[in-house]
Design a protein around this nucleic acid. Structure first.
Length: 520
RNA sequence: GAGGGCGUAGCUCAGUUGGCAGAGCAGCGGCCUUUUAAGCCGUAGGUCCAGGGUUCGAGUCCCUGCGCCCUCACCA
């Protein structure tokens, strides 16, 4: 890169990098063994050792009793008082001050301090001590470069505020805003914990195809791609469901998959085109079996997060904040039958078609020429779901069968479906089903779906109304009765970490391309 | 998809009725060995998102486009 198109601030940093090289040091560093975290270094401080050093430090032959540490971090603050340089380093455990005194470090190390910029990475060796003002500090005995920041960092006080840059340049957000790193550390531990909980209950984690010939298992527009070797079109999966059920056919008793799904649809605070879903299937179970599983998983994840934050973890007081709401994860999740919730929220029975239509008209809900069951559901989603207490996780049970065409009807009342949806803080978190295992019924449902394609839907939308003949063949081999559920991991992490948008719990959320894209 | 808001120095932000483009921090030069967003003196830094228009004159008003955010709609 020639000088004329380099920003002056970058040019200055390049000059500072040359100054480091002139000292005989490599600005980009090399392997360092024996490094400890800044939090661990702070914990090594000993008041007794400080005191002894202060008392006998000038005696000949005195051996410094203070802990000697080697730490690495990014320079977030730099105060050069002439012959003494104060540096605040940051790593994943927090910030810690180090001091470089001209008297106590080699000349080239001191010059490195002078030539360092905010954002540079360094390794510092020294003794853990406490300053006059009481701050635990590494009193440097040596320092060496570990990486150069040619780009100026965000404002040292405000951090990185611009949400667009936070998402596009997450590598800056993660170090400049420590809260961001905490969210993603929590996410990672939540997912690990979910795996442990499922493993402990005998669920086997499996991986099924993401590239699928038919994108089934849900109703959503898929992404298309193409495989060169076989010269065939492929879809990115919208759900793993049909493959996980094939595994039940194969005799696996309990399976789960935590992985990405892709849906070629809109983006908003709760939707990203790729998102992470846990799907779990329990042979010889039913909707109740997996509801109990989900409640266990959500409650224990909440307990994990509460513990990390030093909050109460016993059921009686297990609560986590989400915005203005304090969500109760310790009490048994509520179970609200759809018809009852409808009636208590709207004031009349969903079977009272005349009042349903009147009320839809009064509340401005579309109803003309629409199937009454659709109007019922619009009223339900618009008013009954919103009437739920956001602080109490709730399963909505007993969905009308007419609204759940792919779900098995309840044995004791075929007008209702064996389906339950978990809602927390008005977010739809997880559907649960008693799965279909009769191949003839499944085949009929597939055909019904194919016929259901509205005339005005375009050809692309038709492609996801698939008939999966191999899946029918699998069911003909014989699948045990089963309960299945799908838990949106991103939404769960949003709830547990108190983040209002899905983008704040995804490291690299989908963004529109910026600027001129290079031709590719 | 509709409506609204925002886009100014590396970062965080001001910019009045249309009248010379601003501050803090960061940067650069100087001083300073216990600082805490260090301090003091000095100094440099702009495609006001892009393009067009109105006007003697546009960061400011109008139009178009781009990006981000919010609300609504769509979404098993």
């Amino acid at each position: 890169m020639s000088d004329h198109d380099v920003h002056p601030l970058e040019a200055q940093r390049r000059a500072n990098r040359e100054a480091v090289r002139a000292l005989g040091l490599s600005p980009y560093g090399s392997r360092s063994d024996g490094l400890i975290s800044l939090a661990d270094a702070k914990a090594r401080h000993s008041a007794e050792a400080d005191e002894e050093h202060a008392r006998r430090g000038k005696e000949p032959g005195f051996i410094d009793p203070r802990a000697r540490v080697a730490v690495a971090g990014r320079i977030v603050l730099l105060r050069d008082t002439g012959k003494l340089i104060w540096i605040n380093l940051r790593d994943h455990t927090g910030d810690m001050q180090v001091a470089l005194s001209q008297r106590d470090v080699p000349p080239e190390a001191f010059q490195l301090g002078k030539a360092s910029d905010l954002g540079d990475l360094v390794v510092v060796e020294g003794r853990v001590m406490k300053t006059r003002t009481g701050e635990v500090t590494v009193w440097g005995e040596g320092v060496r470069p570990a990486g150069k920041a040619l780009v100026p960092p965000p404002a040292k006080h405000e951090g990185l505020v611009d949400v667009e840059i936070r998402y596009r340049q997450r590598y800056v957000d993660l170090w400049a805003n420590p809260e961001t790193l905490k969210v993603f550390e929590s996410r990672s531990r939540i997912v690990s914990h979910l795996r442990r909980l499922l493993d402990a209950r005998g669920y086997l984690e499996v991986e099924t195809p993401m590239l699928q010939r038919l994108a089934g298992g849900a109703a959503a527009r898929p992404f298309r791609t193409h495989m060169n070797a076989m010269d065939i079109p492929l879809f990115l999966r919208i759900a793993p469901e049909l493959y996980l059920k094939r595994l039940l056919v194969g005799g696996l008793p309990r399976v789960y998959e935590i992985n990405r799904n892709f849906r070629n649809e809109g983006l908003d605070k709760q939707h990203n085109p790729e998102f992470t879903m846990l799907e779990a299937y329990h042979a010889h179970g039913d909707v109740e079996t997996v509801m109990e599983l989900t409640e266990h998983l959500v409650r224990e994840s909440a307990r994990l997060v509460a513990g990390e934050r030093g909050l109460a973890t016993d059921d009686a007081a297990l609560r986590l904040p989400f915005g203005e709401v304090s969500i109760d994860y310790g009490s048994p999740f509520r179970r609200l039958p759809y018809p009852e919730l409808f009636e208590s929220a709207l004031g009349f029975a969903m079977t009272d078609t005349r009042r349903v239509l009147d009320e839809a008209a009064r509340r401005g809900v579309r109803h003309a020429g629409v199937d009454p069951v659709v109007v019922v559901n619009d009223l339900f989603e618009g008013f009954a779901e919103k009437s739920l207490d956001p602080s109490r996780p709730a399963f909505i049970t007993d969905y009308p069968a007419a609204l759940s065409p792919l779900t098995r009807p309840k044995a004791n009342d075929p007008r209702l479906a064996d389906r339950a949806d978990l809602f927390i803080a008005h977010m739809e978190l997880a559907p649960h089903y008693t799965e279909l295992n009769d191949p003839d019924v499944q085949e009929a449902k597939f055909r019904e779906q194919l016929r259901g394609g509205d005339a005005d839907k375009n050809a692309e939308e038709e492609t996801f109304r698939t008939f999966d003949a191999d899946f029918i063949r699998a069911l003909k081999v014989g699948m045990p009765p089963a309960g299945g559920m799908g838990l949106g991991i991103d939404r769960l992490v949003m709830l547990l970490t108190d983040q209002r948008t899905i983008r704040d719990v995804m490291l690299f959320p989908m963004m529109r391309p910026e600027g001129q894209q290079p031709a590719s």
